[in-house]
């Protein structure tokens, strides 16, 4: 078996070059790969295109850090608070740099990735007809159905250079289990040219194969496996961590001005060596307060 185990620093350095398009936040508000995002910031990556449906505050942080040239998104902000202040500063005032925005809906982001995952140039939908989205987004085009003549919106395939997901467990080859809401995870990892999986735990392949319905990405699609406990904090990971509402609220307040955002970035990203140091900085009390109530699934029998 080929081990793809690597550190986050190695994975980001190798698979996220300047100018890459990166899909993240595929679970919507859960399992957001914040550890990967912070490493991208520390390595000073530039001219990235970020792709995703919601991403909570992760995309706002990357934009504020100056890593991003373009976003292909349905929504950018702070889910618990409101607007994304770095996103606003970039769009309205080109601070820290100008930002190109391709506005999608959650459905059209997923369809664009699904088209790439299926190897077709577009997929049709009935959403967004008559709105300003197809009027202003070159990847959405109003077309006529070749069979019925009905108006439809064609969503152009979206093929990211790399997908980064965070999951509960994976084996060293990258075969990965994820449970809870799946969002656009399945489409994103199949659409992307490369995949980085960060996980709470690395497990033996027997664990993965013992419950194959829970596998969201087969290892042959995966380039790097990063063991990264608490790698999605402050977003929740079912069975491992609750959402850290207070951490999000603090970010929301401190991102209000450019100055206080820069202080936040120093404190939680730039002056932090890696995720292990971030977790120790959070402290044992905070971590234990995030541990969830147990809710074990009943056993299933794959008897043959």
């Amino acid at each position: 078996m080929q081990s793809k185990i690597s550190t986050m620093a190695e994975a980001v350095s190798r698979w996220v070059p300047d100018g890459a398009s990166v899909v993240m936040g595929c679970g919507l508000e859960s399992c957001i790969p914040f550890a990967a995002g912070h490493e991208i910031i520390r390595q000073g990556k530039r001219d990235l295109t970020l792709i995703g449906p919601i991403s909570d505050s992760l995309f706002d942080q990357l934009i504020g850090a100056g890593c991003v040239r373009k976003v292909v998104v349905a929504w950018i902000g702070n889910v618990g608070g409101g607007p994304g202040y770095n996103f606003r500063r970039a769009v309205e005032h080109s601070i820290p740099r100008p930002l190109e925005v391709e506005d999608h809906t959650n459905f059209t982001i997923a369809l664009g990735l699904q088209a790439a995952a299926w190897g077709v140039p577009y997929l049709p939908t009935r959403t967004a007809l008559g709105t300003d989205l197809p009027a202003r987004n070159p990847s959405l085009r109003e077309v006529q159905c070749p069979f019925t003549g009905e108006p439809l919106v064609a969503v152009r395939a979206i093929q990211p250079d790399v997908a980064i997901i965070h999951v509960q467990r994976a084996d060293p080859e990258g075969n990965a289990h994820l449970w809870g809401n799946l969002g656009i995870t399945l489409e994103a990892v199949r659409a992307a040219k490369h995949v980085i999986v960060s996980c709470e735990e690395v497990v033996d392949s027997a664990v993965i194969k013992g419950d194959p319905n829970r596998t969201v990405v087969p290892g042959f699609l995966v380039d790097a496996v990063v063991p990264e406990p608490w790698g999605a904090h402050p977003s929740p990971v079912q069975g491992y961590s609750r959402r850290d509402h207070a951490f999000y609220a603090d970010y929301y307040e401190r991102s209000r001005t450019r100055e206080s955002f820069e202080q936040w970035l120093q404190e939680w990203v730039l002056e932090v060596e890696d995720r292990a140091e971030y977790v120790s900085k959070l402290g044992a009390d905070r971590i234990s307060g995030l541990r969830p109530v147990r809710q074990l699934a009943p056993d299933v029998d794959y008897g043959w």
């Binding site: 449906p53 919601i54 998104v73 349905a74 929504w75 950018i76 902000g77 409101g82 607007p83 994304g84 996103f87 606003r88 769009v91 309205e92 925005v101 506005d103 999608h104 809906t105 959650n106 459905f107 009935r126 959403t127 967004a128 007809l129 709105t131 989205l133």
Partner: peptide
């Protein structure tokens, strides 16, 4: 067009469909 808001999310889909 002076204040940029977060965007559709799933709202356009729900309103359309």
């Amino acid at each position: 067009r002076r204040i940029r808001l977060p965007g559709s999310g799933g709202a356009c889909d729900i309103a359309s469909l």
